[in-house]
């Protein structure tokens, strides 16, 4: 199954449910991830963002750089969000980059 190339986090301006339309490959997360090498904060992301299909945006179609860029925009307020703006402010750019790279390594992002 081909992954969708375009992807947006849900935003408060216009089409807040856009993200819901993305039907991503429903690979199961039945096998828990290895957190033994995870950078601070990374494993908590998976409480909401799974590889499976839910109402929440999956990270599957995003690259590590996409995630880092999104976190920077949420942190600066350059991008609206229902909730990620509140989370992103708790992480420095360096922490966000390490998290994004770990998520990609673990197969949560591409």
């Amino acid at each position: 199954m081909k992954e969708r190339k375009t992807f947006r986090f849900a935003t408060t301006t216009g089409g807040a449910l856009t993200a819901l339309l993305f039907c991503l490959c429903g690979s199961s997360l039945a096998a828990p991830q290895d957190v033994s090498q995870s950078p601070p904060g990374a494993s908590a992301c998976l409480g909401c963002h799974s590889a499976g299909e839910t109402e929440l945006p999956s990270l599957k179609a995003l690259s590590a750089l996409d995630i880092e860029t999104a976190m920077d925009a949420f942190r600066s307020g350059g991008r609206d969000a229902t909730l990620m703006n509140r989370i992103a402010k708790g992480f420095t750019p360096e922490e966000s980059r390490a998290i994004a790279q770990w998520l990609a390594t673990q197969g949560h992002a591409k």
Partner: peptide
């Protein structure tokens, strides 16, 4: 999103 969170966490 609350629904999505519940599905994700209970799956995990």
């Amino acid at each position: 999103y609350a629904d999505g969170w519940y599905k994700t966490i209970t799956q995990e």
